[in-house]
Structures are given as structure tokens and as C-alpha cells.
Amino acid sequence: MPLAKHPNPSSSVTSHFSLKGKVAAVTGGARGIGLSASRAIAEADASVATLYSSTNDADAIASQIAADTGANVKAYKASVETKEEIASVLRQISEDFGGLHIVVANAAASIGVANHHAAEDYTEEQWRKVMAVNLDGAFYTAQAAGNIFKNQGHGNLIFTASVSAILVNVPQKQAAYNASKAGVVQLARCLSVEWVEFARVNCVSPGFIETDMLDVHPEAHRKKWFDIIPAKRMCEPDELKGAYVFLAS
């Protein structure tokens, strides 16, 4: 039962966050937020499969996390845009590790597409590309994870969405990106109810995080953001580690 009671609630608080004996897969797990989530989950004693699509040194990254944490960490290549490919890789991970308990659907946070066009100027191709990675890929990952969880009788799914799901970023124009992220948040809500008998489903919606995804923005955009960010700084990816471990625990 995914909402089962802790076996010993009065035990040390660290036991409530331990992932010892668990197996996790993190899409987009070799860079940005996904890399921080992969490392955090490994630090909590889980075995971790880091999924990537184009990171050339993904195997070396996985090996370094393993060396630093003592966890079993391996890299797997998969495109979340292709339904059967992500499903096949998650099945393979489950076979290789002897189960799959946690899936972080994070690829859109690491390779997500945020074309900056006025809404009236989007081409069909531009719109579909954003949705293919950010929303379709999140669903394909969730669907593949859900089938594994259903067969096991339990599992834990965590989406990475964005604050863009609930507000309109300025000054950039990114209606497609915002809409795709809003779709991820609502998808998470739907699955948390639909799959309540065999999976727990949650969603993290970060604000501005200092990753290479922001490199495409001109300096003028950054100045505008700092005008409206209360803390006047970006968040480092590692500052999100606790959130992922909490939701995975």
C-alpha cells in the first residue's frame, strides 16, 4: 500500500527519510536538477539509475556518484519522447536492479524546451516540440512507471514541473512552455487520485534554478527576474535535494 504507515514512527527521524533497499530511476538524471535528485537519492542509500538522452559523460557521472555515496548507480540512455523506448528502459532497470520503487520524471527540467516566441507566431512544429518533451515525455515516463508499480503493488512517482505552471513568466514569451508545465501539474494531480491503490504521486515546481537551461536567455531577462525575485538570487540545484528525498521517502 503506497500510503502505508511507517513500521516504527517513534524511530529516529533519519529512518523516516532513509531510502535503503529502494531502487530509483531519474530521467534527465545526469545534469541540472536531475543530477541533484540522483545524487540526493543515492545519498539516502537507494540504488539509482540515471537516465539521459545526450549527456556524453553520463557513465562517468554515474560512476562518480557511486564513488561518492557508496550506492549502486548506473546510467541508461533513453528518449522520453518515444513511448516504447522509455518503457523498455524502465523495464530493463527493474530487471537489472530487481525492482523499481521510485521514478523521478524530470527529463523536461534537464532537456526541456522553452521556445521564446510570441504566441501568435508559433509554428506547429515549434508547439509540438515543446509538448513532445515537456508533456508527452512526462506522461510516457509516468505510464511506464505506473505499469511497473501496478504489477508490484506499490511505487512512488515524482514529477518535476515548474513555477511556470501557475504563473506567467516575464519578460520572456513562452506560452507553450507554461502550458506544458501546467499540464504536468494537472497530470500529477490526476494520477495521484487514479493510482492511489498502488502508487504515490507528487510534483515539484521549482522557480528559477541556476542551470544551463537558462543560458539561452539574454542578460536583460535576468535583470528583470532579479527585480521580482524576493531573495534577489537564483536557487542552486542542490538546494532542491531535500525536497526529492522527502517525497521519495
Rank of each mutant, 00 (worst) to 15 (best):
F226A: 10
K5P: 03
D96M: 08
A42S: 06
T55Y: 03
V196N: 06
N72G: 01
D238P: 05
A30V: 06
E194A: 15
N169H: 08
S18E: 08
S36Y: 10
K83L: 14
R189L: 11
F17G: 13
I209P: 01
G29H: 12
S110I: 08
A119L: 15
A4F: 10
A176M: 03
K129G: 01
I209A: 03
L51A: 04
S180W: 03
A71N: 06
A188E: 02
A66N: 03
S54P: 02
G137Y: 05
F149E: 08
A66Q: 03
S18C: 13
A107R: 00
H116G: 09
S18D: 14
A42Y: 07
R39M: 11
I33L: 14
R200Q: 14
A46F: 09
A25P: 00
T82Y: 11
Q172V: 15
A107G: 05
K20N: 04
P237R: 07
Y244P: 06
D57Y: 00
S54H: 13
H221V: 15
N156L: 10
H101R: 03
Q174L: 06
A71F: 10
P218K: 14
H154G: 01
Y122V: 02
V193R: 10
I111C: 04
R91T: 12
G21F: 07
V133M: 12
H116D: 12
V216S: 05
A105G: 08
N156V: 10
K232V: 11
E219P: 01
G98T: 02
T27N: 10
K173T: 13
A220P: 00
D121C: 06
V23R: 01
S38H: 11
D215L: 12
